[in-house]
Amino acid sequence: MNIFRLAGDMTHLMSVIVLLLKIHTIKSCAGISLKTQELYALVFATRYLDIFTDFISLYNTIMKLIFLASSFSIVWYMRQHKIVRRSYDKDQDTFRHLFLILPCLLLALFINEKFTFKEVMWTFSLFLEAVAILPQLVLLQRTRNIDNLTGQYVFLLGAYRALYILNWIYRYFTEPHYVHWITWISGLVQTLLYADFFYYYFNSWKNNVKLQLPA
């Protein structure tokens, strides 16, 4: 494993920890999109179908379990926890799941490396992960005022994606036959979706002011 990949996984892990910390200690999920969190739970559930059939490494299995458990518990907190769920911006978080799920599923049925259930689900999870942040970005745009933890959560997710691109470039030059167009293109699309957010995040950081997105 190269340094970019490890750093990518660690920022991904940190994003989840920041979010759980916000929910668990402040008992608030204000500014967090339940739609995005549900899509992530679906992403992990469909991508890690191999968790009990193909052993890759202990690291791999443990990380998969962490991402599955954390994504489903975040959804549980936001839907079921009697205090946390009250802070959910339900009226602002109106993005429709199906608008993202259906096109990704159709695309995965036609574009995949092998037409098997596991492989189509894996490809679907890549496409869906690429766009799963959209409801969150829409919610940020609507609420405009973003608290520090929410800003850090989205920033860490974006950093994870950027580091994965560096990981692919590194692997392409160091490993033979490492060509994965589906992964790369969907990963690139996903990272580009954060570009706008990053621009405002760095500006607010540089000018040392509270992060605020334009209307």
């Binding site: 791999n60 991402f67 490396e113 092998k114 492989e119 994965h180 589906i182």
Partner: peptide
């Protein structure tokens, strides 16, 4: 094939 390389990623 997709079953090698990239499948060790998360």
């Amino acid at each position: 094939s997709a079953s090698t390389g990239v499948k060790d990623e998360l």
